[in-house]
Design a protein around this nucleic acid. Structure first.
Lengths: 331, 331
DNA sequence: TTGTATGCGTTATCAA
DNA sequence: TTGATAACGCATACAA
């Protein structure tokens, strides 16, 4: 049997209540009993059972992180940042992966909510049903969103418009004006990056050309390979490609270019998005837009803590992080 | 207030015990009460509080995964595999990152154990103190190890000796006999790969040469760059390099070779380890040893489940996965 | 300053 | 087939 608060009490000759007060460092306990109890705790190797504590306190000491997949760079780096902030607290992380299925998401959220599995929730890159969210909000369950924005809760995200703008501008400053764009087919972030792209074109007096846009659903390597071909078919006149769909896709573009005998950066310049750690291992090294993901994860956790302890209001608020242009050889 | 089992009981006019039995589908409940209770549950939108349940059952429904960092390819892929298996269960994943600090590890394990935070533990690539492990084992807390082996618990790992052998043999069959080796400076896996390397040399009558071995601490790109130089300094006579320290390091070797004007594979052949997904993006494409990491993660979880439900004994047992030689252009 | 009593939500044992 | 009761480990209001 695990040693409980009762065992300590019996050993010292006080009641469990007293031991409990010592553990929670209540001020009104005599120095002497305190020492005795602490000694016994150490001696008997007592550790509080957090389930018992949770039940009476109505707190779980868990933070739930929900994402479609954790085996992605973005999710993983976010988690790393969250972990870093978590470090000094007594909270633990529970991961909920929807595996890309919306039906899972609904179900998961319901369980999270009704079964009281977490004191706060971080939602990574997931669109959440408005009505589900309202339930949470009504009960005051703290939620912070990463990347996605929802009316009524804080969001931590990147300045995607700026990222899109920086990449496009970098091309233009390098004398490239026929800029293709590979971008996600939906989602706020994709639209923001697109806007940045358009803004830059506009600021430099370059007309926007619908034929230079290719939309992708999955942000993987194969899509990149396909996209280059699609793009060259739609528009023969391209001297640069901004792959706003991410570095992995951009690497697919690089690979396909090599197969087609297209030289990067001589014939076509390429800029990716994310700065994954292999971006400097490709040949040529990939110029890309870096996002401080882990840092953002830390911030997210801090905001959530604020909501849990009541110092941060439960309301719409966008905290945004700056992107950074990492210049390598691909343009 | 959240709706509890009592509310349901009151509504239907039975006792909480009865409701509980319905929830746990006890066979000895009349069809009629069952229906009434279920209707009320649905109607009042009741969901069981898992903390209450945990307290009385002594189970948490959580699985803890411990690793030094989750932002590594290996850990990430493992988690992905674990997630896949987890899918059909009611278990949740709690991640514990030691951040590479041994003192964290001890503390974390203690908390995990004494505070009863998880029903089972998966330890990824971490050496665990024998005495801590013994505590767990004494209490029957199920643990499965990934990669590391400990006396008394099951381990899921790869056949590193075979992997080392396959790579070395592939060189030999390609008429290369002056094979350099870049390998981790400690750890069971490194030693096993080294053994595979030696075995192959031996089987083909090639003398082992200490000067052809370079040890690395970190398995990163920069080490690879350095290693090539070190190796060429130690032994001028090398026509092949087996980078058992992983693909990232191998890519560093490739990069450095290019800088030094050494042609791969003409001058020197290179084989990596892991088959990370950019291994086919380098030029030349990296020949490497692939390990089915995600699959191994799934297996690990399944073994743990077996230990939790008592069908798998708590004992030393090594489940090993086969490596695979992926031939590309680097040799 | 400490002990007594009670309750958190659920399940299990026993009796009815 | 169901009800009454106790128990899981802990924290808190109140009494002493």
């Amino acid at each position: 049997m695990r040693v409980t608060i009762k065992d300590i009490a019996k050993r010292v000759g006080v009641t469990p209540a007293t031991v409990s007060m010592v553990i929670n460092s209540s001020p009104k306990i005599s120095q002497k009993t305190k020492e005795l109890v602490l000694a016994a705790i150490k001696d008997m190797n007592y550790h509080p059972n957090y389930i018992g504590r949770s039940l009476v306190k109505g707190k779980t000491n868990n933070i739930a992180v929900v994402a479609s997949f954790f085996a992605s760079l973005f999710a993983l780096e976010s988690v790393r940042g969250i972990e870093a902030s978590l470090r000094n607290t007594t909270y633990n992380l529970i991961l909920y992966s929807t595996r890309g299925l919306e039906e899972n998401e609904r179900d998961m959220m319901q369980r999270l909510f009704y079964e009281r599995r977490a004191d706060g929730i971080i939602v990574i890159s997931l669109r959440m049903d408005k009505d589900i969210f309202e339930e949470f909000k009504k009960e005051g369950v703290p939620i912070v969103f990463l990347e996605e924005v929802i009316e009524g809760a804080p969001t931590v995200k990147f300045k995607n418009i700026k990222g899109g703008y920086m990449a496009t501008e970098h091309f233009i400053k390098n004398k490239r004006k026929k800029i293709g764009l590979i971008i996600g087919e939906s989602g706020l972030n994709a639209e923001e990056r697109l806007k940045g792209y358009k803004d830059a074109l506009n600021d430099y007096g370059i007309p926007f050309d619908e034929n230079k846009i290719v939309r992708v659903r999955n942000y993987n390597f194969e899509e990149g390979e396909k996209c280059l071909k699609t793009l060259l078919k739609k528009s023969h006149d391209v001297d640069a490609i901004f792959c706003a769909a991410g570095d992995v896709t951009a690497i697919g573009v690089l690979d396909q270019a090599k197969k087609l005998g297209i030289k990067v950066p001589q014939d076509i310049g390429v800029i990716g998005y994310d700065d994954i750690y292999i971006a400097n291992l490709t040949s040529p090294g990939l110029t890309t837009i870096r996002q401080p993901i882990a840092q953002m994860g830390m911030q997210t956790f801090d905001v959530l803590m604020g909501m849990i302890d009541g110092t941060t209001p439960y309301e719409s608020k966008i905290i945004s992080f700056e992107p950074e242009l990492i210049i390598r050889e691909s343009v």
